[in-house]
Amino acid sequence: MDQKIEELFQEYDRKMNELCNDSPAYDTDDLFNTYRAYRKVILAKRAGLSDEALEKDIRAFAAMTDALHVRKDAPERIYLWPEGKMPAEPESRIPPMFRMADDFRPYMYEVLVSPEVTPKGAVLCVAGGFQGRTVVNEGYGIALEFRKLGYQCFVIHNRVNALDFNTKCSLNGKENGADIARAIRYIRANADQYRIPADRVAAAGFSNGGATIENCVQYYSGTRTVKEYFPGYEPDELDAYYGAPDVYINVYGQRFPEVPFDWTGVVYPPVFEAAGRDDDTGATSNLYTLLPDLLAHNVPVEVHTFAGTPHGRTAYNLIWEKEDHPNFDLFVPLADAFMQDAYQKNERRD
Rank of each mutant, 00 (worst) to 15 (best):
282 G>K: 06
113 V>C: 15
2 D>F: 05
208 N>E: 07
78 I>R: 13
97 M>L: 15
289 T>H: 11
69 H>R: 14
280 D>Q: 14
257 P>G: 02
341 D>I: 04
59 R>F: 00
156 I>S: 06
57 D>K: 13
108 M>T: 08
243 G>I: 08
264 T>H: 06
173 G>Y: 09
293 D>W: 02
251 V>P: 06
308 G>W: 08
321 E>V: 01
345 K>V: 04
327 N>R: 10
33 N>R: 14
277 R>E: 15
190 N>E: 09
348 R>N: 08
64 M>K: 15
276 G>Q: 09
14 R>S: 12
213 I>W: 11
206 F>G: 02
270 P>Q: 02
91 E>C: 01
143 A>Q: 04
345 K>W: 01
62 A>M: 00
207 S>R: 01
225 T>H: 13
129 G>N: 12
83 E>N: 06
273 E>P: 00
30 D>P: 00
197 P>E: 13
287 L>D: 00
237 E>F: 11
262 D>W: 04
12 Y>W: 10
309 T>D: 04
108 M>S: 04
315 A>P: 03
202 A>Q: 01
27 D>P: 04
213 I>G: 10
195 R>C: 10
324 D>H: 11
110 E>H: 14
178 A>R: 08
21 N>V: 02
159 R>M: 09
322 K>G: 00
137 N>S: 12
158 N>M: 11
219 Y>N: 07
293 D>S: 08
116 E>M: 00
104 F>L: 12
139 G>E: 06
122 A>V: 08
294 L>I: 06
111 V>T: 15
98 F>V: 10
100 M>I: 07
50 S>L: 07
160 V>E: 10
347 E>A: 14
91 E>M: 10
75 P>H: 09
344 Q>N: 13
298 N>V: 00
232 G>V: 05
289 T>R: 07
250 N>W: 00
161 N>Y: 14
187 I>F: 13
111 V>M: 09
335 A>K: 05
194 Y>R: 01
88 A>N: 04
307 A>M: 09
14 R>F: 02
155 V>H: 09
83 E>K: 14
52 E>S: 13
336 D>M: 03
113 V>P: 03
300 P>K: 12
182 R>F: 11
287 L>V: 00
28 T>K: 14
115 P>C: 05
58 I>H: 02
75 P>N: 07
27 D>G: 15
